[in-house]
Design a binder for these strands. Structure first.
Length: 784
RNA sequence: GCCGAGGUGGCGGAAUUGGCAGACGCGUAUGCCUUAGAAGCAUAUAUCCUUAGGAUGUGAGGGUUCAACUCCCUCCCUCGGCACCA
């Protein structure tokens, strides 16, 4: 029969809420901190994909509690961001109102799913009591010179009308809205994440994270070691950065980035042409640049020559936009023989190509090798030559990173105000009177001029300088969406503290996060930013660990039944509410875990949901049928189940855990189970399906399951006395035989050779060899 | 182009210190139940050979081994990321 999940689930959720079952109370050890990436409270609510991660961490949290851990498992809202603001522009409804409504809805979705969050620790990044500390961290960065203001050509989204960080530009498009970005010169707040490049790279090794994410961060940071070597143009030193100092004798021209400061100082014969090229390069969008990778353009500086320092040869000088102004020195020594880009360029402009390592036809040879054509350095290996040539030319050893500083200001309303006052006399003055609250405005529309809508509120903008008392103006830019999420995991530890972001003792106790679960899309955004802030706070002595998240796991997407990503605009979203209404929260939870490995993307299939629901109904019937049973035919089996489930949960292979439960019930059939067996079964399943297990636990007369421990299996019970041995002839399965455990080769062999099936296969043939793997297999090899 | 993950029935997937490939679920088929349907229950379900029984089979090809989904080499494809970083 169908168990009445609606009633049962409501009943237990009320009990948990009333008894504050999931509140983390003390500093007792051992602790376990399980964290989900907190969501943006979208108006559409969350879909079943979000809950795949939440259910997984909920199971981990529940198992850990049963194992005696003091579990911290909180939830909050990353609530600043564009959708609420865009909605406000359209409707005039303040983002605060929409946000609150959305949060109430999503919190309810989480509660009806039976997630065991400690709601007393709920946080919201848009709450002034929260962003006070976001601003406080910003002021510390400012104090230490890690936040600075600079006029920069930055990525600009014409649709969102705001600047973007490099990490937010995907394929030349805005990460949020998909509009092509352009370049714009605006004065920006920038955070010096590059100061932490080395530490961010190094400490990756200490983390239990998916290789994929580590690799992505490594590539994003992009470390390369080389030499800075001075070339000369008219007695001016022009440093270039190279990782291939060993190829210097093959350098046949020099290339400057269009932005290079030297260009304006040179007397170039074809000045007009050159300026035209520079102007064109400036206006190229990201996308144009990318599409032109295969077709390099450039222009020679006529009348200018550079001197190659290694052989005093005169070489031509070019400007080309394949050389980037912001990396290295903005100038490169071109070695067409040993660099693909230089090779292409040289072919196009008919420049000299001199091989000095090894030559191949029609393309550059980019590997290391042994030098020739290189004067006194002939015969050296590449790695030796790099050092020798670098030192010979008095070059400087240099490490460069691809990572660039973090563009931190946004020209929008719905974000944390940057707590800074700009005074005509004193310049940039920190406003220590935190929180600097976001004022109400009438119009949310971004101005598009590079100023945020805050700039129009005179009463807010015009203030007295805290330093000199003179006239001053507030900074009107706001922080990016990533600010609040860069440290939120610290606030959960002590969410109501008004004096510090978290009490030192508590921070020291709960950090680091033991398990962090979320989508892989944040690999070089949130996960990099949070590590940066954390390391900064560590250096200042405010936190006690070098890294915030010890173990990270990514959830795979849940795709809609059409194989596409779930999205409101495609109308293919499945909400947890409808599944819970139809089948119950326990079914939703079990199905999300049963779908497949949880790090993998899998298509949603409601037939599968029904299958899981059927299983829960069968579980119900099985327990009810046996609740007063004294006989037990399943004690051994349930102990085996205990072992298998414990092991699979440990590895977070929840899909197989559930298969084991199903196997058990299939095997059980009409066999009898006593209370001990039922209890073990229910305890094992409780983290997966807490409502039905709580109810059945009560029905079999055991009280409240919440206080119970994770069960231990009895090793003696599950030790087999007989084992099945696989018998192969010439490596092919022919027979099986049951023998006592640890039977010797001789025993098994004599048994096997008597068997009719085996006799048939070995008839008239000579046995050349018999292989035996104890308790597993015997392979009889015949002579050919 | 570079980096990473992966390729197993009709579908989602299981099994890797090398040892019964396809657990579990979905779907499908047949039967029971039902006035009928739905639900439920039972049985079957990798492919090929008419069957007993056998052969083949984990992207393709090769190799190591008594034994390969698992290890090695070459290649193909899918997904994700990066994108002229000298």
């Amino acid at each position: 029969m169908n168990y009445s999940f609606r009633e049962i689930e409501k009943k237990w959720q009320n009990i948990w809420e009333k008894e504050k079952t999931y509140e983390t109370k003390d500093l007792f050890s051992p602790k376990y901190y399980v964290l989900d990436m907190f969501p943006y409270p979208s108006g559409a609510g969350l879909h079943v994909g979000h809950f795949k991660g939440y259910v997984a961490t909920d199971i981990v949290a529940r198992v850990a509690r049963m194992q005696g851990f003091n579990v911290l498992h909180p939830m909050g809202w990353d609530a600043f961001g564009l959708p609420a603001e865009n909605y406000a522009i359209k409707t005039g409804i303040h983002p605060e109102i929409t946000t609150k409504k959305n949060i109430d809805n999503i919190r309810n979705q989480m509660k009806i799913t039976g997630l065991s969050y400690d709601w007393s620790r709920e946080i919201n990044t848009t709450d002034p009591n929260y962003y006070k500390w976001t601003q406080w961290i910003f002021l510390r960065l400012l104090e230490k010179g890690l936040a600075y203001k600079k006029l920069l050509p930055i990525n600009w989204c014409p649709s969102c009308k705001t600047g973007l960080a490099n990490e937010e530009v995907i394929d030349g498009k805005c990460e949020r809205c998909g509009t092509e970005t352009t370049k714009k010169d605006i004065e920006q707040w920038v955070l010096k994440i590059t100061d932490y490049a080395e530490k961010l790279l190094e400490d990756l090794d200490s983390l239990d994270w998916p290789d994929k994410i580590k690799e992505m961060q490594k590539n994003w940071i992009g470390k390369s070691e080389g030499w800075e070597i001075d070339f000369k143009i008219n007695d001016i030193n022009v440093p270039v950065f190279t990782t291939r100092a060993d190829t210097l004798f093959g350098c046949t021209y020099l290339v400057l980035a269009p932005e290079h400061s030297l260009i304006s100082k040179l007397k170039v014969e074809n000045k007009d042409e050159v300026n035209k090229y520079i102007e064109k390069a400036r206006n190229k969008s990201e996308r144009e640049r990318i599409s032109e990778i295969k077709d390099k353009t450039g222009i020679e500086l006529k009348g200018i020559k550079a001197i190659n320092p290694v052989n005093q040869k005169q070489i031509p000088v070019f400007i080309a936009d394949y050389v980037l102004g912001h990396y290295g020195t903005g100038a490169v020594m071109a070695v067409p023989a040993h660099d693909e880009r230089d090779f292409e360029f040289a072919k196009k402009y008919n420049l000299e190509i001199i091989f000095v390592i090894d030559s191949v036809k029609d393309k550059a040879f980019v590997e290391d090798g042994i030098l020739f054509n290189s004067g006194e350095f002939d015969g050296l290996k590449s790695f030796e030559a790099r050092e020798n040539i670098g030192e010979f030319l008095k070059g400087r050893k240099k490490i460069n990173y691809k990572l660039r500083d973090w563009i931190f200001s946004r020209q929008r309303y719905w974000g944390e105000p940057i707590p800074v006052i700009i005074c005509e006399k004193c310049g940039i003055v920190p406003d220590n009177n935190l929180p600097v609250k976001l004022p109400y405005v009438e119009k949310y529309e971004p101005t598009g001029t590079g100023e945020s809508p805050l700039a129009t509120i005179d009463s807010w903008v015009n203030v007295d300088c805290p330093k000199c008392g003179g006239k001053a103006k507030r900074e009107t830019n706001t922080m990016p969406q990533w600010a609040g999420s860069s440290w939120y995991y610290l606030r959960f530890i002590d969410p109501n503290n008004n004096n510090e972001f978290a009490e030192k003792e508590k921070e020291n106790f709960f950090m680091p996060v033991d398990l962090y679960v979320g989508g892989a899309e944040h690999a070089v955004l949130h996960l990099l930013y949070a590590r940066f802030w954390h390391k900064f706070l560590y250096d200042l002595g405010f936190v006690s660990t070098k890294e915030p998240f010890f173990k990270l796991r990514n959830i795979g997407l849940v795709l809609a039944s059409d194989g596409q990503k779930m999205s409101k605009s495609k109308g293919n979203v499945v909400s947890p509410d409808e599944i819970i209404e139809k089948y119950g929260a326990d079914t939703l939870r079990m199905y999300e875990m049963f779908m497949g490995p949880f790090e993998q993307a899998i298509v949603w299939n409601e037939q599968g949901v029904k299958g899981v629901h059927k299983f829960l109904n069968r579980l119900w019937d099985f327990v009810i049928k046996n609740k007063d049973e004294e006989l037990d035919e399943l004690l051994v089996e349930v102990n085996k189940l205990n072992k298998k489930v414990s092991e699979s949960v440990e590895k977070m292979k929840f899909n197989t855990s559930i298969a084991f439960f199903m196997e058990f019930l299939n095997y059980a059939g009409d066999k009898k189970a006593s209370k001990n067996t039922l209890k073990m079964l229910l305890l094992l399943m409780f983290p997966f399906a807490p409502h039905i297990c709580s109810e059945l636990w009560e029905i079999i007369g055991c009280g409240n399951i919440m206080v119970e421990k994770w069960p231990e299996y009895d090793k003696r019970l599950i030790t087999e006395e007989k084992v099945e041995i696989i018998i192969q002839v010439d490596g092919k399965l022919r027979d099986k035989v049951e023998v006592d455990i640890d039977s010797t080769e001789e025993t098994v062999k004599s048994l096997v050779l008597q068997r009719e099936i085996i006799k048939k296969w070995t008839e008239n043939k000579e046995v050349s060899k018999v292989l035996f793997v104890p308790n597993k297999l015997m392979n009889i090899i015949l002579k050919k």
